[in-house]
Design a protein around this nucleic acid. Structure first.
Lengths: 153, 153
DNA sequence: CGGAATTCGTTCGTGTACAAATGATATACC
DNA sequence: GGTATATCATTTGTACACGAACGAATTCCG
């Protein structure tokens, strides 16, 4: 780096060397997510987190349209479509036309999907527990509260 | 749900309806990540977070092998390759053979890459700030500490 | 020295993610 | 009633992300 470049940064009170990637929220967020993904894959190998999220949300709210389901689990239309396609291929969900709106596609759990989800719920709780294991219960509660504030903006 | 199924769950002290997807770490982690991605894209549209991470880490450590760089920023061999390929196509990094180990490919910033990174650093700080904006400074510090514990297992 | 185990980079296949464009259908409003 | 606008689902293209398998090169060790 040139001398003039250094001076400029020093005047701003920050040196380029002060930027440490490993301490940036985005970077650590990505690593935390990676660790969670690995735990999820180890315990629920046979379904991905987005697929599980779709089933769990359908279990909560019952039949909805494809896009609506996407909004509920924060996936855009293009993404939810792929997820639903794969769940449908495995007969965990079924699609039906909407009675009054021919644009809409209603999605719902099949019996098989409901049974699968119910059997996975205990393991899903274990995934959450193991992910939070590095924290004390008190820390975990604080963390979740702050994380939610961050996620919701 | 059948009556016997309900009884079983009650005996365990947890009802299936008690599982709320929106409160699970994994789900909120994914949403927080999404929000960060959007902020990053708005401020540094022209580079993705993985690409930026690769440049920033090269800036920190200087020339390294491709896989080593991947380890430093938590990307597996297959992923880092794509990232490097795209950075190389834009001449932000350059590859060179290793002097003594013919398996290795050394990666380094080009002058262009160094200049680009330096000009992006202030905006990268803004990305971090905006991401953490929903928290007070004190909360942000706590959050980062707990997030790191979580990420490192 | 020489074969076994490792490491490095590459490729393939699958699964998110999201922007942008598109066609079909609904709704709004004039 | 008929057009402008909006919504729903789909498709295309780009970019991670990771498991698995692979060849080439290196290191380990008997």
């Amino acid at each position: 780096m040139s001398v003039s470049g250094k001076l400029k940064l020093v005047e701003e009170g920050r040196k380029a060397e002060d930027y440490r990637l490993d301490e940036q929220v985005g970077f650590v967020l990505r690593k935390a997510n990676q660790r969670h993904l690995a735990i999820f894959a180890a315990r629920i190998g046979d379904l991905t987190p987005p697929q599980f999220a779709a089933l769990a949300k359908l279990y909560e709210v019952g039949e909805t349209s494809q896009n609506q389901l996407g909004q509920l689990i924060a996936m855009d239309a293009a993404t939810i479509k792929g997820v639903i396609d794969r769940l449908k291929a495995r007969r965990l969900v079924a699609l039906a036309p909407h009675a009054h709106d021919r644009r809409r596609l209603l999605v719902n759990l099949t019996d098989e999907g409901r049974i699968a989800l119910e059997s996975l719920l205990p393991r899903a709780r274990d995934v959450t527990d193991e992910t939070l294991a590095p924290l004390t219960p008190r820390e975990a509660a604080t963390f979740l509260r702050l994380l939610s504030k961050l996620a919701d903006g």
